[in-house]
Amino acid sequence: MPVAQLTLELRIEYAHSLKDRRQVVRSLKDQLRQGFNISVAELDEAVTWQSATIGIAAISHSRDYLQGQMAEVEKAASRIVRDLGAEVADAWWDFLEI
């Protein structure tokens, strides 16, 4: 059964505190969970205020479905963080077979 994993590297230029960073990360995670049937987690520690790494995972019987879903999640994440004053600096995804 295929599992898709998507990793997003965020750049949060306006963040001047950990609170600013958390607001972007929490909002992104909540909106993605509400809009898609996926798991979302922050992958890094809050080392810098201006960056964050988000991990997303989904499972399905169809690899094609997951490929389409990850493309939609990536587009939605870019839109969400742009509305929050941040940007997706890098994104990559891969499949695992379990």
Rank of each mutant, 00 (worst) to 15 (best):
L8N: 05
R21V: 04
W92R: 08
G35D: 08
D20N: 14
I54N: 03
H16D: 10
E74Q: 15
A71D: 10
S60G: 04
V24Y: 15
A15H: 00
Q67V: 07
A41Q: 01
M70H: 07
H61E: 03
I54Q: 06
I56D: 00
A91D: 07
E72K: 07
G85H: 02
D64K: 10
L28S: 06
L43R: 12
A77Q: 07
F36V: 09
E87S: 15
Q34C: 10
V25A: 09
A58D: 02
L28N: 03
R63L: 04
S39G: 12
T53K: 12
H16V: 13
A91Q: 11
Q5S: 14
G85N: 00
S62C: 06
W93Q: 03
K19L: 12
R63E: 06
I98K: 04
S51K: 14
D83C: 14
G35I: 02
V88W: 05
V25E: 02
A58P: 05
W93P: 01
S27E: 10
S62F: 10
S62K: 06
E42N: 14
G68M: 10
I59W: 00
T48V: 10
Q5V: 15
I38W: 01
E13I: 08
F95N: 11
A77F: 06
T48S: 04
S51C: 11
E97S: 01
R33G: 06
A86I: 02
A77Y: 04
D44G: 14
V25M: 09
A86H: 01
